[in-house]
Amino acid sequence: MHSSRRDFLKLTGIALIGAAVPDALLPAGLAPAWAGAPGFRPDVRALKAARWGMVIDLAKCRPDCTDCIAACHAAHNVPAFGNPKDEIAWIRRETFGRIFPAQVHRHLEPRRQAGPVIALCNHCANPPCVRVCPTGATFRRPDGIVMMDYHRCIGCRFCIAACPYGARGMNYRDPRPFIRRIDPGFPTRTRGVVEKCNFCVERLAVGKPPACVAACPYGALTFGDLEAPDSAVRRAIAGRTVLRRKPELGTEPQVYYTL
């Protein structure tokens, strides 16, 4: 009894000291888990890339289909609040005119302008959301994926103001009652934190492609390593006219759209 109480106090003390030390001052061995903490062994099946990217073929995307959104939102326990005020979406279907306002002109066929375009986080190479986050809760992994730590986020929403793509959503209320069926394979969020698409890091870690890519029945979504010349994404954009959202802002989006 006595020794266990002492151990408990010792552990508590260590934990308290640990909590009080900023990350920047920690020795390299105690870096955050995602950077490869000691004892962490990645799954042998894990997919790896120098820079993950996605290509969306607008010619293949169908106006009557939302399979990618359904698959993503089910896999990530994204709540469906049912009203635009609280709405959170990791992937949203919008019109061509909304996603590419600079490409709209008077003589663009209405069918094209109203055509469906799906939008998700661009996992920018130069992400403004990461720059403005005051706690490092939003960060960029070495493989280019812009990720969030839902346990560190303080809910200041600076990242939402900084994102030029409307890719982020705030949990204005408890999301759990609004999740149709909770998938125990992915954590739910709490009220008061921001969330967004994570390029399915949890699926990549076990060798699976992103849920949206796997769900698309028309093969409109391609995912892969943008740095590898023979990768699926590089082949998908080779020789094609490519659009990226608001490239003039210098954020370097890693989601490409082919016409």
Partner: peptide, 8 residues
């Protein structure tokens, strides 16, 4: 979690 601004 406001003190995360100081912790991190």
């Amino acid at each position: 979690r406001a003190f995360n601004v100081l912790l991190h």
